[in-house]
Amino acid sequence: MNYIPTREEIIADHDNVVYERTCLLTDNPLSYCPGCGHGTAHRLIMEVVEEMNLQADTIGVAPVGCSVLAYDFMNIDMQQAAHGRAPAVATGIKRLMPDKFVFTYQGDGDLAAIGTGETLHACNRGENITIFFVNNGIYGMTGGQMAPTTLPNMKTATSPYGRDVETMGYPLKITELIAMLPGTYFVSRQSVHTPANVRKAKKAIEKAIQYQKLNKGLCFVEIVSNCNSGWKMTPEQSNKWMEENMFPYYPLGDIKVPKEK
């Protein structure tokens, strides 16, 4: 009979660890609701930065929105930008310090609503920054109001009968929009609701960070996420709802990949 080690013996040896929380996240408890994809997205970005040993050379720009306190959670140099202006701030940082890895972390209210102009022009100028865009189709922090990315017929606090596209317009596919611009180098859309998608998202984040070193243009990774509080669902229900409703409108995958030479 084989000897089977006990639980205490296994967890006593740190060599047995196959997965633990990265040290680039601070010990502060995350301010997000239970089950929110923001926490996973934070962790993935910090894991990649740690694996690539870039923690001393990374500057992040935090947005306004649910992730406004990102600088409290990410244990790297961070800068807080005015609402929607993170790409503009990141542009300045990158131009002054071209050797640093500069990224912005923005939600859909920040990037696709008030900051559309900054985002489009930063992408069009081809700034050598990386943008991480978390899209949950709603204004989460302010109480679940309709966002530009809200799906047609989706009920929110300000569209209680569902989003009527005739009066409120269509959801903004900003990721497809910026993929058409010649200034962007790598554009991808991922999600973090299942282990397989988390692994794929991590690969996309790795590419977005590696490509910044090439100085070929802006890298953009959208992460379709849930907002279970805003959608009034449990975390598990909201992930299922996201698969059924968000993914047909926001299909996952790489939208613009560099041409291999």
């Binding site: 929380r21 408890p29 692994r199």
Partner: peptide, 17 residues
């Protein structure tokens, strides 16, 4: 651990001889 938004889970693994 991969899907945990709060990074609350540490995973250990040993190979049995």
């Amino acid at each position: 651990a991969l899907v945990c938004p709060d990074g609350a889970i540490t995973v250990y693994r040993v190979k049995l001889k």
